[in-house]
Amino acid sequence: MMDNITVNVFVAVFKMGSFDLAATAAYVTVAFGILIYIFALCSNLLLLGIIAVNAPLHQPMYLLLFSLAFNDIAGVSAMIPPVVYNLMTEQRLTSFLACLFQALILHLYVGATFLILSAMAFDRYIAICHPLRYHAIMSKTTVIYILMLCCLINFLLVGSVFGLTLRHPFCSTHVSNFYCDNMSILRMTCAKDITINSLYGLFVTGVYHGLTLFSIVFSYTFILIACFRNKDSDARSKALYTCATHFLVFVVYECSAVVVVLVYRIPQSPLTLKKFMAMALVVFPSCLNPIIYGTKTKEINQKIKQIYKIFQRSALEKTRLNTVKTIAE
């Protein structure tokens, strides 16, 4: 970096890092990325649509699931389209505001996922351990307040992280990563000592992980106790099945995070693998969450089957009409 020259970020053009792929590999990556994005976008939009248009699903658990699907769309949209665009163009240029916006959305996505999963764990705890008081405690108003609190905490934590970064002047316009995040922006500043940024970043990460782990351990400990005390085997099985869906989503997200951390901590890991795995924290959960909830949640599964049957009947009717028209001609 050029320590004696500061950059006016609002007029400068920033150059993104590259994947360093051969032409054929780049084309395959672009095609694969587009397919993944279309799948993640369509599956999450389907989940949003099913919850939105079906009044019986306007319940706390599904409102939280609605928020999770919306958050997944925001995260995958902030990651894949810009990366695919940079792979398709040789210049790989962007503006500071576009880079900052992408970084903010990605960090807000990660934080919101932790907070929503925590809220969903609390919802399952109330539903199973205090079923008679569930509707009194977890009303729609309560869920809205919980989501508003999650948004406030998320904006404060992420905003403060970027506030510490943006207090420094910039000395470079080269983004070290192939997408923008707080660390890649911090590396472009003139800051020589980033100890405060690093420590506070670790603190914020600890808050997100600690809150989620506490809520999961606390909720599921009491849920398991309540289930084993319940003499009704059907009710016990239903409760465990419902919780298993949420727990599976949590495991997928945590496993993605752990794999990313391990890959970056192993010196022998190929650079290309590190770059691809950096996307895993956004791409994998965004693709798998709608599959998990679509197949494991009975009400949503039934709605998907109904939609499929409607399209199937429509296709059969169209085929029949075309056949009749052909015979008539």
Rank of each mutant, 00 (worst) to 15 (best):
L202P: 01
V204F: 10
R167S: 08
V11F: 07
K318G: 15
A119Y: 08
A235Y: 07
T189G: 05
S219D: 03
G17H: 07
G163A: 01
F114T: 00
F228N: 09
V204A: 03
N4R: 09
N44I: 02
T189C: 07
H174C: 09
L202Y: 05
T165Y: 05
L68N: 06
L186D: 03
Y37I: 06
V28L: 15
E329I: 06
R320Q: 13
E317I: 12
R92F: 06
I225H: 13
I36L: 15
I266Y: 11
P131F: 00
K15G: 07
L273R: 06
L21Q: 10
K303M: 13
Y220H: 11
S184N: 04
I327K: 06
I50H: 09
G294K: 02
A191T: 01
T89P: 10
Q59T: 15
L271I: 15
I194Q: 12
A239W: 05
I80W: 00
L271N: 15
G111P: 04
T297R: 06
I327P: 05
A12Q: 01
N197G: 01
L65H: 05
L147C: 04
L47S: 14
N301D: 07
G33W: 03
T212K: 03
L211M: 14
F155T: 06
C171P: 00
C243I: 00
Q268R: 10
Y253H: 10
P290M: 01
F122L: 13
V207R: 03
I300R: 02
H58A: 00
E317L: 12
S176Q: 09
L288D: 02
A98R: 09
L45R: 08
T245L: 05
V83Q: 02
Y208V: 01
T195E: 02
T319Q: 15
L41A: 03
P82T: 04
Q312V: 09
F250S: 13
Y109I: 03
V143G: 02
G163Y: 05
R236D: 06
N177W: 14
L46K: 07
Y85I: 05
I185R: 04
V11I: 10
V283E: 05
R92Y: 07
T323I: 15
H246G: 15
L57N: 05
C255Q: 10
L45E: 05
C243W: 00
T6E: 09
L248S: 14
L57K: 03
S67E: 05
F19Q: 08
V251G: 08
I146P: 00
A121I: 02
M2A: 13
N86P: 08
Q102V: 10
F96M: 02
Y220C: 02
I73F: 12
D232E: 09
L199R: 07
T242I: 12
R236Y: 11
R265L: 11
G163C: 04
Q312G: 12
F247E: 13
F218A: 04
V175A: 05
A112H: 10
F203V: 03
M183W: 13
I128N: 08
K275D: 06
G201L: 01
T29W: 04
D123F: 00
R229M: 08
A103M: 07
